[in-house]
Structures are given as structure tokens and as C-alpha cells.
């Protein structure tokens, strides 16, 4: 299964729904989506990842890119990640820089 991404910006909140597998092969697609969103200057990035079954370090590097591209004031929410992905985020210290939440913030 490859990666499927959908989403957009509404009321300055950027939302991306990621489904499938985020590896070195599919990460460039994720990066392209982040670049497109950045042009609309969102104040928050919400990543819906309940159906993301795999994330390699290539995905982490896109999160670093997102933080740098969107600006440090733009909070990143990772919504409903599967346990293995939470494990990766925690092991690499990314949970200090993104919000891992069960539901998208209101």
C-alpha cells in the first residue's frame, strides 16, 4: 500500500489526512503537500494519521521540514497515531515538538 494524502486549509488551519505507508519512497509527496500548504500561511497544522500504518525516518524529516517551513509559531498536531508510530515519535524526541492527541483540537 502506498501513501494517500488529502486535505487543505480552512480558517487558517491546515489539515492533512495521511493513509498508508510513509517511507523514503512516499515522503517526497508529503513534503510537496507541506510546501503547498505553507504558501497559504496556516497558523496550525493538523495531521490525521489514524490510518497511517508505517512511518520511517524519512517521514520524521518531513516533520522537521514542516516546522522550519511553517515557522516555530505554528503548532503541529499528530492526531490518533497508531502505537508503533507514537513509539517512533517518542524515541526520537519528536513528542517534545509536536502535539500527539486523540482528536483534532477544536
Amino acid at each position: 500500500m502506498t501513501l494517500e494524502i488529502s486535505g487543505g486549509v480552512e480558517n487558517a488551519v491546515a489539515t492533512l489526512v495521511l493513509k498508508g505507508e510513509l517511507d523514503a519512497s512516499s515522503a517526497p509527496l508529503f513534503k510537496t503537500e507541506i510546501e503547498a500548504l505553507a504558501a497559504q500561511h496556516p497558523t496550525r497544522l493538523v495531521l490525521e494519521v489514524a490510518d497511517l500504518t508505517f512511518m520511517a525516518s524519512a517521514g520524521l524529516r518531513v516533520l522537521i521540514f514542516a516546522k522550519q517551513k511553517l515557522g516555530t509559531g505554528v503548532d503541529i498536531y499528530v492526531v490518533a497515531p497508531q502505537p508503533a508510530i507514537v513509539d517512533t515519535l517518542e524515541k526520537t524526541g519528536f513528542h517534545h515538538s509536536v502535539y500527539i492527541v486523540d482528536q483534532a483540537p477544536a
Binding site: 525516518s57 522537521i64 522550519q68 516555530t72 526520537t92 515538538s97
Partner: peptide
Amino acid sequence: GPDAEDLSIPLEERDEGGLGIMLAMD
């Protein structure tokens, strides 16, 4: 790979390298 100090650096200041190998070894 990154050490404990590297892992506590905010993402916006992160160097991208070494994360994959760290995850592999771990």
C-alpha cells in the same frame, strides 16, 4: 546517531541526520 542531548533539541533547530540509523539499531 543523535545522542540524548540532540534528541531534546526542538525540531526547528534539528539536524536531520542519523535518525534512521538510530531507529534501526534500536
